[in-house]
């Protein structure tokens, strides 16, 4: 009897699972997945604006055009290198900030609010700077030379880059905070009993336990950096689609760019899986 009951319970869980997910998935299919399929189709046909979906099939012609586009390959390589450097910096900073914010400090709540605040504003700020013709963040020159000494030591360019990266790390800080709070307190108590210093606790307990979260954060930061609306490739795609109305070319660029991102993410994931410490039991 218990066996039959167990089966039907499993069965019910499966149907309920599908039911709960289905609404979201329908929206996702209609407004993301199907449009993605259409854009793949657009990238392989040469349709005009009036009749974009029924263009003539041209196979990979547009993709070949992208490969021979010299100005694009320059932008492309630049952006990939930039994004690959951004993600680890964001993650390391977010980890340090999260560990400090997770400790017992005065005014913890206010500090957390302050570190999360850029999430609502940093995109807008970049837009204003662009509209003032200062897309290169020369704004930091003034701040750097007058207010802070650090910029003299590490150089103004690096300082400006770091600044914008810190503002983009809010979500990663949050991911880390959630991860840190799931570490059982008893581990630290035991370590303290055995005379471990906080420094040792960080390397021997904190980092191994949240290593899956570090991987998650790096992946999130990488994707975020690759797809932020202000990066050069997004600008290039927008230009060819909206300004030059060359939809097929824009779609071809997007798909090639996507394949590169996917490849990079898969590599990170594969390497990350080997480096991170596996918890014995599945939680």
């Amino acid at each position: 009897m218990s066996k039959r009951r167990g089966y039907s319970l499993e069965r019910r869980k499966v149907t309920e699972g599908y039911l709960f997910v289905s609404v979201w998935v329908i929206g996702f299919l209609a407004f993301t997945l199907y449009p993605l399929y259409m854009s793949l189709k657009i990238s392989m046909t040469s349709g005009k604006i009036s009749d974009i979906l029924n263009g003539e099939f041209v196979g990979l012609d547009h993709y070949k055009r992208v490969l021979t586009d010299a100005s694009f390959s320059q932008v492309f390589v630049d952006q990939i290198l930039k994004s690959l450097m951004d993600a680890p910096i964001i993650s390391i900073f977010a980890l340090i900030a999260a560990v400090l914010l997770n400790g017992d400090i005065v005014g913890k709540r206010y500090f957390r609010a302050v570190f999360f605040a850029p999430v609502i504003i940093s995109g807008l700020m970049i837009r204003i700077l662009n509209s003032q013709g200062a897309a290169d963040f020369s704004i930091f020159q003034e701040l750097g030379s007058s207010a802070l000494l650090i910029s003299d030591i590490i150089g103004e360019d690096t300082f400006a880059r770091m600044g914008t990266l810190l503002w983009r790390s809010s979500v990663e800080i949050l991911i880390f905070l959630a991860g840190l709070q799931s570490i059982p307190r008893s581990l630290y108590e035991a370590a303290e009993m055995d005379g471990a210093t906080p420094w040792e606790c960080f390397w021997k307990i904190t980092l191994p336990t949240i290593s899956p979260i570090v991987l998650l954060s790096i992946i999130y930061a990488t994707i975020d950096s690759f797809t932020e609306p202000d990066n050069q490739i997004m600008g290039y795609i927008r230009e060819s689609t909206i300004t030059r109305l060359d939809f097929s070319y824009g779609a071809a660029i997007s798909w090639m760019y996507f394949l590169v991102i996917l490849l990079i993410i898969l590599i990170i994931f594969y390497v990350g899986r080997r480096v991170t410490v596996n918890e014995g039991s599945q939680r």
Partner: peptide, 15 residues
């Protein structure tokens, strides 16, 4: 789907 530029799906979404 997170890895796609929103620009890619803009026109198909319109359709």
């Amino acid at each position: 789907s997170l890895m796609f530029a929103p620009e890619v799906v803009e026109i198909p979404r319109y359709l």
